[in-house]
């Protein structure tokens, strides 16, 4: 066991993947000498060379487009998009090519490309550096979309994403990069499959569904609610597409109440899919409608306002109260 930050866990996971498979490449803006703006790729170029850790020109579509070409030649590129709000120049290559080319080939082609995206707010950044664009990608068939929430999952899930033969959009909660945990870097198997959710705190009264940065917020809310005698179950979805619907519906059938919590705007967000599914599959078990806690349907605000925008412990507990009030 080693104590690692989430950022370092990702770094160690990528390092392990590069050691295991010479076809794994890391590419993106500033990922080489600098080690990435969040230092997630720190030291990789020094150890694996410029051919495998590629400082690219400053053009996101180019990063994904050339990664596709490298994958066609048998490589497994791990691309870093520097910030969530910078992914849109690459959206065409991700949505139109990366997601659809395997189907276009009737299965002849596989595109094992990982698109790493630091996501979410809470770091006092300027515009375009705090967004949560996951719903754009969960809506795109052909992509797998996952989000890690803690150092242990970061270490395993990045390796699982790299090994996966499908393209994976990999969300990293940037404000949790510096969270620490004990990580076992010796084990190479026995990991929870990366398309499975995990119950991170069992409870009996309300199910909280979260992923990425909001998992910690929900755990804090659950601890606070316990003092009021309410038992909240927190499920870390980990994989958004495919969704581990069985774990979700099992939990909701037990608790009878459900909140969905994400930073992204509620309207048309991933929570809408969760709420609809749970309503379809758990209708007779529900004591209250599925409630959604998330950002307002506005662009992400200037950072002096972000504490009002981001769901926090109080917003979650307020929704818990509303769920009980039905």
């Amino acid at each position: 066991m080693t104590t690692l930050t989430l950022a370092k866990s990702l770094n160690e996971g990528m390092r392990k993947a590069m050691e295991d498979d010479p076809k794994v490449l890391v590419m993106g803006e500033d990922v080489g000498k600098l080690g990435g703006v969040f230092r997630v790729t720190d030291g990789l170029q020094k150890d694996f060379g410029e051919e495998r850790v590629i400082d690219t020109p400053l053009a996101e579509s180019g990063i994904i487009g050339t990664a596709i070409g490298l994958a066609l030649r048998g490589y497994r590129p791990v691309c870093e998009i520097q910030f969530d709000g910078f992914v849109f120049p690459a959206a065409d290559q991700i949505i139109t090519q990366l997601a659809k080319m395997p189907l276009r080939s009737l299965g002849a082609l596989k595109l094992p490309v990982v698109v790493r995206i630091p996501c979410g707010g809470g770091i006092g950044a300027v515009e375009h550096h705090s967004e949560s664009p996951e719903a754009y990608f969960t809506h795109t068939a052909g992509l797998r979309v996952v989000a890690c929430s803690n150092p242990v999952d970061a270490y395993t899930m990045i390796q699982q994403a790299i090994r996966c033969d499908d393209p994976v959009v990999f969300f990293e909660p940037k404000r949790r990069y510096w969270e620490k945990a004990e990580v076992d870097t010796s084990a190479a198997d026995g990991w929870l499959p990366f398309d499975r959710a995990r119950i991170v705190r069992p409870g009996t009264d309300v199910t909280l569904l979260a992923y990425g940065p909001m998992v910690k917020t929900c755990l804090e809310a659950a601890a606070a609610a316990e003092e009021d005698g309410r038992s909240l179950e927190v499920v870390d979805l980990r994989s958004l597409n495919p969704l581990d619907a069985a774990t979700v519906t099992d939990s909701v059938r037990r608790t009878g109440r459900c909140l969905v919590v994400h930073e992204a705007p509620v309207f048309g967000g991933f929570g809408a899919e969760l709420a609809a599914r749970i309503t379809e599959e758990c209708f007779y078990s529900l004591e209250a409608p599925v409630l959604r806690v998330g950002g307002p349907s506005t662009p992400y605000p200037p950072s002096r306002l972000e504490e009002h925008y981001l769901p926090d412990l109080d917003r979650v507990l307020d929704a818990v109260d509303r769920a009980f009030a039905f």
């Binding site: 579509s61 180019g62 994904i64 487009g65 050339t66 990664a67 596709i68 070409g69 490298l70 994958a71 066609l72 030649r73 048998g74 490589y75 065409d92 290559q93 139109t96 090519q97 080319m101 276009r104 080939s105 002849a108 082609l109």
Partner: peptide, 28 residues
């Protein structure tokens, strides 16, 4: 068709996208 069979990639309909794929392939 299987692009590897004839070293001829699939038709690309969105204009220009394949130029990046080609360059990435060449980097490979």
């Amino acid at each position: 068709w299987d692009p590897a069979e004839h070293n001829f990639h699939l038709y690309t309909i969105v204009i220009g996208s394949q130029t990046l794929h080609a360059v990435g392939y060449a980097m490979g």
